[in-house]
Nucleic acid binder design. Structure first.
Lengths: 145, 145
DNA sequence: TGTTGACCTGAGAGTAAGGCTCAGGTTTAT
DNA sequence: ATAAACCTGAGCCTTACTCTCAGGTCAACA
């Protein structure tokens, strides 16, 4: 199998495969013409990498896991260890994204009733500077919002 | 005001301010000693940048917005235009993060009952390869999962 | 006056996970 | 024979910073 064939069979871009080769995650043999040759072990490896990425592991994590397995050790303890901080980070990022989307939606909503501001030297853009668009600032006594 | 003073007064790192100077978002005067001098307009500008960042605008967006304002135009139309794709992207990222956290939590939960796998050549790590950890795969008729 | 420590500068590289582009080589089909 | 389609390694691009570097400045203290 060549790069594009593997790419198609595993639904990833050829660029991604080249990237994995570059960083050492995949180590295909090389044919006499210099082309990479991907056989079944490499294909399984790629599938594994994609599954691990889908669970939030970084390429470096995956490198570590694969190295465990290559040394004949069970990679499971490493896997159980590594996922904890990743999950923690993912939760934090999720919360940050929730807060961001909320701020943005609040902003867009409140902007519907605000006219465009004119330059005056006191502000740059009142839409942005106008309020902080947090939750608390929008549950108030507004009666016609 | 020098970099660290501005940094403290606006709760950002000095490195961030230097970065904004580097990319042209802030253009402080320079004293005879070569040091940057931040006066009130620059301070307001920084505050604006931070507020805009908090609403999900990229530094490039902010550059555009500030340039509008400098040309004496109202930046509001640009602001209304730019936030749409940003909001769209933020929602997509949010959904991706929700799905990711869910997959990760499902995985961690199911791993509690799974023993560490031993290397056998058929798999790299059964924890990761074992199932796809999606929602559908976990509401089924499994009685001892 | 010398020196220390805290600050300043621009420039360059690093981060994550690829994407894109380049010049040059290979293979396949017409 | 030649053109299309593929291959290679290498290097730069993305985001919004962060870190490090070498060298310059400044205030205080001995």
């Amino acid at each position: 199998m060549k790069v594009h064939e593997l790419a198609r069979s595993e639904q990833v871009s050829a660029a991604t495969i080249r990237h994995y080769v570059r960083v050492g995650l995949l180590q295909p043999r090389k044919g006499s013409n210099g082309y990479h040759v991907f056989a079944e072990p490499e294909q399984r490896r790629l599938r594994f990498i994609r599954q691990a990425r889908g669970l939030g592991f970084t390429l470096e994590d995956i490198q570590t896991i694969l190295q465990d397995a290559e040394k004949g050790q069970s990679p499971c303890p490493t896997v159980r260890q590594l996922i904890e901080p990743r999950l923690q980070q993912a939760r934090e990022k999720l919360e940050a994204m929730q807060a961001l989307v909320e701020r943005m939606e609040n902003a867009v909503a409140s902007w519907q009733e605000q006219p465009d501001c004119q330059p005056c030297g006191d502000h740059i853009c009142l839409l942005i500077e106008g309020s902080d668009h947090t939750e608390q600032n929008r549950g108030g006594d507004a009666s016609h919002e």
